[in-house]
Design a binder for these strands. Structure first.
Length: 268
DNA sequence: ATGGCTGGTAGAACCAGA
């Protein structure tokens, strides 16, 4: 059967888009996604590296950057709705952690970088941990009232399932896999019946990590990974998903990000 | 050996990531 014209959407925490421009270009050449969502661009909008993306036809570049840290962007080869892109501040502190647009087919695309949450999993001792939970709480209230078919992608900084980390037991007290984070993320998921595409296509308990620390001497040999990056779809959007992959090989590219890209293909 | 590294920005015996 002849392939349909699919819509391919990628998401990648790039840990500085300027430092990784070569490997971002390699991904665009090898995978030719229609849309690429980036997190941790670490660049203000004024100095975003537009040229490489323009050269590959990504004429729509929706940016939300800030100095030093964080920052998100949506790069697209297909037209996006002309309406003003949404920028939610779910942490209520001005950090650049979300950008959203509407696709021509009416589906909304929301690109989010959830706060890491610091080291100590206790909001009394560590304000960042409380801010992370509050960020998810505000996202949940947004999600409860959501009526449009939506694809929510990004670095959620939580590995929810036991099989989403290299050692459930050893990570129970480590921020990203604590019970309170898993419960809070679960409330977000329930609030819209979000479909976790990573687990629809790679069912638990199969290994499906998206992040490996820079500090391991040999990340692949130790394989102490976590599934921190996600693509969640409204039920009606999930029905259109025909393929989903985590591009683990990108972790071995020269000067890699510590996260790898996720790609979902939709039949539209 | 869950921080052993990494980037941004300053020009750090720094900060943040997760």
């Amino acid at each position: 059967m002849a392939p349909m014209a699919n819509l391919k959407i990628a998401s990648w925490n790039i840990n500085s888009v300027r430092a990784r421009l070569d490997i971002v270009e390699r991904l665009l050449i090898e995978e030719t996604p229609e849309i690429l969502c980036l997190q941790e661009t670490k660049v203000v909008d004024e100095t975003f590296p537009h040229e490489m993306f323009a050269r590959h036809g990504y004429d729509q570049r929706i940016l939300h950057g800030q100095p030093m840290h964080h920052g998100v962007a949506i790069l697209s080869r297909i037209p996006l709705d002309a309406e003003t892109p949404a920028r939610h501040d779910w942490q209520d502190n001005g950090e650049a952690r979300h950008i959203g647009v509407r696709l021509p087919n009416g589906i909304r695309l929301e690109n989010v970088y959830v706060p890491a949450g610091g080291d100590i999993p206790d909001r009394a001792q560590n304000a960042k941990f409380g801010q992370k939970l509050d960020f998810l709480g505000r996202m949940t209230r947004w999600s409860e009232s959501l009526r449009e078919p939506t694809l929510l992608v990004g670095d959620f900084n939580i590995a929810p399932l036991e099989c989403d980390v290299w050692s459930h037991k050893q990570l129970l007290d480590v921020v990203s896999h604590t019970p309170i984070e898993v419960e809070t993320l679960g409330q977000l998921q329930t609030s819209h019946d979000w479909i976790d595409l990573g687990r629809r296509f790679v069912p638990a308990p199969q290994r499906n990590y998206t992040w490996w620390s820079y500090r391991a001497k040999d990340w692949a040999a130790s394989d102490r990974g976590r599934r921190l990056d996600h693509m969640w779809a409204s039920p009606a959007v999930a029905e259109k998903a025909v393929a989903h992959r985590v591009l683990e090989s990108c972790r071995s590219w020269l000067r890699p990000s510590d996260h790898v890209p996720l790609i979902t293909e939709f039949e539209v």
